[in-house]
């Protein structure tokens, strides 16, 4: 029972990150009717940008001392009195990294937003009004371009990147079982969930969110009602690439940076289809379910089986409910 709880909680934590990645895919699909097969590679770029701004830039000769490691007097004084492995020490270690974490996040957000804009403007917009097949295949071609470009730009081996939150171990008891968590994982989950909720709220309540929903409903009607559909497109892409940047930064701190990060996007694609392409709630449920199932598979069958859980799950769900758990059924005219 204790193990079961532990793995379920681990699963929920990775499920939250799946949800964060999925939100980008859903937003782009809602606005443009295109599913971005290269989303995993956008995440990879986010991770590499975070690595660049949080690790490489502070090491450069022109970077000030405090960027690399911020240690004011009061912090050193506090640090000196603390025993080893105390939670406070972990928080202080994190604070020392805070400037470069913030720089890394800001850099990743800005660069990835520009990348998303570039892709939308240069590649997707010329295909506006053409068949969806062409647009989707274009994102498939983008997979190779992005993965090759990442190998060209970042040839150095990926190093350790600073975690987004203090990495204190947390132990507590729940239903008589000992649960062991890392603070950074918990914070990542909180960040992911907050952003997810924020985007859902934005799509529901703000003006630009309404524009996205209107475009999703009917592109040409939205156009004739005075909504600038191209702007909606680029907004959706920026939204996807910025959430991808944060997800990339989180994944970089969890699993390290490697070109394999791009493959992560495919499992999220499976999750998105499982939840229903245009339903935030369905995708959220699917992400959490797959996260938990993966963790439980890892526990019972071993790590390598966990990798195919999303794919098996999506096949089963699609066969029973062709439009995913909560996706809306497409109505076709002949």
């Amino acid at each position: 029972m204790g193990q079961f709880l532990q793995f379920t909680i681990n699963g929920l934590m990775s499920g939250a990150i799946y949800a964060l990645i999925a939100v980008g895919l859903v937003s782009v699909f809602k606005a443009t009717r295109v599913v971005n097969f290269a989303h995993g590679y956008l995440i990879m770029f986010g991770a590499y940008f975070y690595f660049t701004f949080a690790v490489l830039v502070p090491q450069m000769p022109f970077a000030p001392e405090w960027l690399q490691s911020w240690r004011p007097e009061w912090m050193l004084a506090m640090r000196a009195d603390l025993p080893m492995f105390s939670p406070m020490a972990a928080v202080l270690d994190w604070m020392a990294n805070l400037p470069r974490i913030l720089l890394g996040l800001a850099g990743a957000l800005v660069c990835n937003a520009l990348l998303g804009l570039l892709i939308e403007r240069a590649l997707m917009r010329p295909l506006m009004g053409q068949s969806v097949f062409a647009m989707i295949m274009l994102t498939v071609g983008l997979i190779s371009i992005l993965s090759g470009a990442a190998q060209l730009i970042w040839t150095s081996d990926a190093e350790f990147v600073p975690a987004l939150a203090p990495n204190t171990p947390i132990r507590f008891e729940m239903f008589g079982a000992n649960i062991f968590l890392f603070g950074a994982d918990l914070a990542n989950m909180a960040i992911a969930l907050l952003i997810f909720l924020g985007i859902v709220a934005m799509v529901r309540y703000t003006k630009s969110g309404v524009a996205i929903r209107a475009t999703a409903e009917d592109q040409s009607t939205a156009y004739s009602m005075g909504i600038s559909v191209p702007t909606v497109f680029s907004r959706a892409w920026v939204l996807a690439s910025t959430t991808g940047a944060i997800a990339g930064a989180i994944l970089a701190t969890r699993n390290g940076i490697s070109p394999a990060l791009g493959l992560f996007g495919f499992s999220v694609l499976a999750i998105v289809l499982m939840g229903g392409l245009d339903s935030y709630l369905g995708v959220f449920i699917a992400a959490m379910a797959v996260g938990v199932l993966e963790a439980l598979t890892q526990w019972k069958l071993g790590g390598e089986w966990a990798g195919i859980v999303p794919y098996v799950a999506v096949l089963i769900v699609i066969l029973i409910r062709p439009h995913g758990l909560l996706g809306s059924k497409e109505i076709e005219r002949i």
Binding site: L273, I308, I318, L319, P322
Partner: peptide
């Protein structure tokens, strides 16, 4: 091809993609 009876377009692309991952996984198992 069985999913192709129920789904098409994009859903089918992802279903076949999943099949590819699963087959490679089974071979490696």
């Amino acid at each position: 091809g069985l999913p192709s009876l129920r789904v098409k377009g994009l859903y089918l692309a992802v279903a076949t993609l999943s099949a590819n991952f699963i087959v490679i996984f089974l071979i490696e198992e």
